[in-house]
């Protein structure tokens, strides 16, 4: 906190923007080139995914806009039949690779954000309850977390995907795939949140403000969610960012393996899966551009998370 001048009317108190700019957090950001570069790429990719319909030259989901004659156009060179030119080339259907990447990134990011949100909701709630209530509730929740942690998250996600797919009627499977994917990744990833929040809650529970709230008779629900929750949020933010990178990779992996986003709604992973088929026939761009996009996206979010962890937790520096 900066000191506020109280008795000096000649000194204008710094604006809110100015104070945010001067905070430790912003200072650490301005002095970390890695953080700035990764924040730039994250923002660039997220914004281009959000504004995909404006940026994309064609809508890859609209069959009317496709011309099969444009198939396998190399990047930058005009097509032999139609003379059209594409920045990143086209796939076998004549779809513009640049546009499919923009739309694919939308699905990758949507699944990633939604899955992390789900994991966060489950993990934070269970962590708060476990930490505040204690007793058999805590034992049950944390034991479940331990058991789940024994298995790699990607395996758990595959299994949940498989079961959910089996439960969904055949005719809805492709439509539901995205939601099943979110459920699978979200459920496979809540443990980290629960563990950290429980640990922080155990510390907060003994503090005076909680005792004061108990004394004036606030309910356990109000104390945990209104009073304790805001105080345990900063580690949650760090885990959420790192989880987002992991969720994006998990989604891409599942889709690449053919147990994720269907070809009718391709994510970056699905595009890489499709592109791998053309690796031997020389159409490298169908694989290359989605793969590089995925890499840059996952790496920037990951580095941003690393920086956030250091910036929010000075003890870990």
């Amino acid at each position: 906190m900066t000191e506020m001048p109280v008795d000096r009317p000649d000194v204008i108190p710094p604006s809110r923007l100015r104070r945010a700019w001067d905070s430790d957090f912003a200072w650490s950001f301005r002095h970390s080139p890695v953080a700035m570069v990764s924040a730039f790429f994250t923002a660039l990719l997220v914004l281009s995914a959000v504004f995909a319909p404006l940026l994309a030259t064609t809508n890859p989901y609209d069959p009317a806009s496709l011309n099969l004659m444009n198939g396998f156009t190399a990047p930058g060179t005009p097509n032999a039949f139609t003379g059209e030119s594409f920045l990143m080339g086209t796939d076998d259907q004549g779809r513009d690779v640049f546009s499919t990447i923009l739309y694919g990134m939308r699905i990758s990011l949507f699944v990633g954000f939604a899955a992390v949100l789900l994991a966060m909701l489950i993990g934070v709630t269970l962590g708060l309850v476990a930490g505040y209530r204690g007793g058999w509730v805590e034992t049950l929740i944390m034991r479940t977390a331990d058991v789940q942690l024994t298995f790699p998250a990607i395996l758990v996600a595959m299994l949940i995907f498989g079961i959910a797919k089996g439960v969904t009627p055949v005719e809805y499977r492709d439509q539901m795939a995205i939601w099943v994917l979110i459920l699978a990744i979200g459920l496979s990833d809540w443990v980290q949140f629960a563990r950290v929040v429980r640990g922080a809650t155990l510390v907060e529970r003994k503090k005076e403000y909680v005792q004061a709230a108990q004394l004036i008779g606030r309910s356990g629900f109000a104390i945990t969610f209104r009073h304790i929750l805001p105080n345990v949020l900063s580690p949650v933010l760090v885990i959420a960012t790192i989880s987002l990178a992991l969720a994006i990779i998990a989604e891409a992996t599942l889709s690449f393996l053919g147990v994720g986003a269907p070809p009718t709604q391709p994510s970056l992973g699905t595009l890489i899966r499709i592109g791998q088929g053309f690796l031997f026939s020389g159409e490298w761009w169908i694989l290359f551009f989605p793969a590089v996009t995925l890499l840059v996206l996952a790496l920037s979010v990951n580095l941003l998370g690393d920086w956030l962890r250091d910036a929010l937790n000075p003890r870990m520096r």
């Binding site: 992996t253 690449f256 393996l257 791998q276 031997f280 694989l287």
Partner: peptide, 17 residues
Amino acid sequence: SLPTFLIGILLIYVFSV
């Protein structure tokens, strides 16, 4: 930082293709 499947594809590209 590279996802496993991308490492595999990269190796295939270099050593097989």
